[in-house]
């Protein structure tokens, strides 16, 4: 791919998370003819969450292609296009619908490089709006990162800021293998500083969003913001919280998390996916197996989604995933020696 991989000290301005993603796709379409966008209603309609917006006006329907309501078919075309030399970015309207395309994602895209002895690769990017909070109920609100993170051959990222949304999307495009981006629906309107021009956020590298000494919270996507709000609240009690933004579910940044837990001795994993067998379970086990074990001074805690489909009722929907007060409460108990 003929794109610069270094940032030339760009200026930055405030963009929303959705605008940052659109800017990234626009840059890619401008610079590389092989890049195409595919997905349901991404053209004239501008995408289910208006992420592609006016890109069809700028680049035409050949490069910004609406696909029929068939996730398996669309994903299959994208995988085939990637395999034969294009750089498709495929948008699912909701990550939940990716289940219809599992064969193409998990069995084809993730495995072809291995099954063809490295003679081929599938450089496809799949964008998946995920998470709850929109009142869209059980079939449109799931957080399925752990499902995809369980498949070797895929990379799975979860940007939590506009800057990372753009940087991780461009990093996904530069990657020679399939990358799944989970975009949190409740973050699309969130604004933040976004550098101009082409830059990438490294896949597999977590970010320390707040430094602290008493407890480490590892969170992803919208949970990063709830963890930061909890950290503000806890600071009033003199509890110093380190907040790590996971950013990448596969691969996981072991070094950053291990170093932090060695410093604080306490770990809370906060994630929106169902708690059992989720991302937090993996991080807990990773820490228990690591050199950080000897530094643990309290049991590891996991705050995850309820063991239930996301409810439609707005209050129940909130109760089904971790919220700031619950994080505060968990950390207080942990630091207060009640766990």
């Amino acid at each position: 791919m003929n794109v610069p991989t270094t940032v030339e000290k760009p200026g930055s301005r405030e963009l929303s998370y959705a605008e940052a993603l659109r800017e990234a796709m626009g840059l890619a379409l401008e610079r590389d003819d092989r890049v195409i966008l595919m997905g349901e209603d991404i053209g004239v309609y501008g995408g289910a969450f208006q992420v592609t917006g006016d890109l069809v006006d700028r680049f035409g329907t050949d490069r910004v292609r609406d696909t029929p309501i068939s996730e398996l078919g669309g994903a299959g075309v994208a995988v085939g296009a990637a395999l034969t030399g294009l750089r498709p970015i495929f948008e699912f309207q909701f990550s939940d619908f990716a289940m219809l395309a599992m064969e193409q994602i998990a069995n084809q895209a993730a495995k072809l490089r291995y099954m063809l002895g490295g003679e081929a690769s599938v450089p496809v990017v799949m964008r998946m709006p995920g998470g709850s909070g929109t009142g869209a109920a059980a079939q449109h609100s799931q957080s399925l990162e752990a499902w995809f993170g369980h498949v070797p051959g895929l990379k799975v990222v979860q940007p939590s800021t506009p800057e990372d949304a753009k940087g991780l999307l461009l990093a996904a495009l530069e990657d020679p293998d399939p990358v799944i981006i989970f975009e949190h629906k409740m973050l699309y309107k969130m604004k933040g500083e976004v550098p101009e021009g082409w830059y990438t956020t490294p896949i597999g590298k977590a970010a320390i969003r707040r430094e602290g000494t008493d407890v480490t919270i590892v969170a992803s996507a919208i949970m990063v913001h709830r963890a930061l709000a909890a950290a503000d609240e806890l600071a009033k009690d003199g509890i110093s919280v380190e907040v790590i933004d996971l950013r990448s579910v596969r691969p996981i940044d072991r070094e950053t998390i291990i170093a932090s837990v060695k410093k604080t001795g306490k770990l809370v994993c906060v994630y929106e996916g169902v708690r059992t067998l989720g991302v937090g379970a993996e991080i807990s086990a990773m820490i228990a197996e690591s050199e950080a074990f000897d530094f643990l001074d309290a049991p590891i805690q996991r705050l995850g989604g309820a063991e239930a489909p996301i409810p439609y009722n707005p209050e129940l929907e909130k109760a089904a995933v971790p919220q700031t007060p619950g994080i505060v409460d968990c950390v207080r108990k942990l630091v207060g020696g009640q766990v």
């Binding site: 001795g265 074990f293 000897d294 530094f295 643990l296 001074d297 309290a298």
Partner: peptide, 14 residues
């Protein structure tokens, strides 16, 4: 023959 190990966190043991 240490049957009743004291309860201690890994950090305390280290």
């Amino acid at each position: 023959s240490d049957l009743d190990r004291p309860r201690a966190t890994p950090a305390a043991r280290r």
